[in-house]
């Protein structure tokens, strides 16, 4: 029983990681007032670039770097459209999703001729699991041993990085000057403007951070969790991350728990696939896959308290006096 629980929780961590990166990415963006439907596209673009670069240069780190670069570039496109040109942020985000979905397969086919995939990565060119100190020695201690050895230890470095990013994000958002200004432009850009701050610059910076975090998310999918890029491998994670962001009410620590919850539902779905649940029978896997969205809708309907987005979210800033 304990083993089963640990196994499910262990995969919860692994499945939460890409969500968590993307959710924090969205948090930075939306806290600054830029709605980002394009998380999905950035993750996908990053996943492709990371896998391709990791294969070509035989290094997961170069892969990660390439993923981040591509994701930041897509983020800048979104930034240019929605900040500089004051375009509709949803439209721009959707365009990036389409662009990434099409371009990754096209380039993958052109470069590697494997039907849009990138070549399989050898273990040396992926992020490998890290065994924490004493994991093997402690494994035999009852209860705590397996938890430490199998649950806490044995993930790749990006998993740890994603969870480390949570307190870091909290600290940046709530304890630094940059964070204060970021929140201000997301709530009332005019207030920031009249205080002598550049709304444009602040929003671009937030967008770039968003791109970097999406880069991590994408690289995790293709170079850590998977071993190469597969068509549409982001599989809606960018959208689930957006749902998680709303569910978390745009707060970093909440975001972590929400992503863990959604990851857990995912892990459970995999675990219970094809299995009978006593009294209910076989539950279709789609039920679990739909749960994150169902929960978000329930939240938005006001059953779990109100989720109030940053006030200026999605509204391009036009400097004018009325």
């Amino acid at each position: 029983m304990l083993d089963t629980i640990i196994l499910v929780l262990d995969s919860t961590f692994r499945l939460s990681t890409p969500l968590l990166f993307a959710c924090l990415a969205g948090l930075f963006s939306e806290r600054s007032g830029i709605v980002d439907i394009g998380l999905e596209g950035k993750i996908l673009g990053a996943a492709f670039a990371a896998a391709a670069a990791a294969y070509v240069f035989q290094s997961p780190w170069i892969g990660l770097l390439a993923g981040i670069m591509v994701s930041v570039m897509l983020a800048l496109v979104h930034g240019y459209a929605s900040i500089s040109q004051r375009g509709n942020q949803v439209v721009s985000g959707v365009a990036i999703n389409f662009l990434a979905a099409g371009l990754t397969v096209l380039l993958g086919q052109a470069w590697f001729s494997q039907g849009g995939r990138t070549p399989a990565l050898s273990p040396a060119t992926r992020f490998e699991s890290i065994t924490l100190p004493f994991a093997d020695t402690l494994a035999n201690v009852p209860v705590l041993g397996p938890i430490y050895a199998n649950l806490i230890s044995g993930h790749n470095i990006l998993v740890y990085a994603s969870f480390a990013a949570v307190p870091l994000t909290w600290w940046i958002i709530f304890r630094t000057r940059f964070g204060l200004r970021l929140r201000a432009v997301g709530e009332n850009p005019s207030a920031a403007d009249t205080a002598g701050l550049s709304v444009t610059l602040l929003r671009y910076r937030a967008t770039i951070i968003c791109g970097i975090l999406c880069g991590f998310s994408g690289a995790y999918l293709s170079v850590a969790q998977g071993a190469g890029f597969i068509k549409d491998m982001s599989a809606g994670k960018g959208f689930i991350a957006l749902a998680a962001l709303i569910f978390a009410k745009w707060k970093p620590v909440n975001a972590m728990f929400t992503c863990l919850l959604f990851g857990f539902l995912d892990a459970l779905a995999i675990r219970l696939q094809g299995q009978e649940i006593p009294g209910i029978g076989e539950v279709p896997v789609q039920v679990f896959q739909a749960l994150p969205y169902v929960l978000t809708v329930v939240l938005l309907a006001g059953f779990i308290g109100r989720a109030i987005p940053p006030k200026a979210s999605g509204i391009p800033y036009v400097k004018e006096r009325t």
Binding site: L180, E187, A191, A192, D193, T194
Partner: peptide
């Protein structure tokens, strides 16, 4: 030109 969810102090020091 105030940020509503901010405290008085946060509003005053912004910028």
């Amino acid at each position: 030109m105030l940020v509503d969810p901010f405290t008085v102090l946060e509003n005053v020091i912004l910028g």
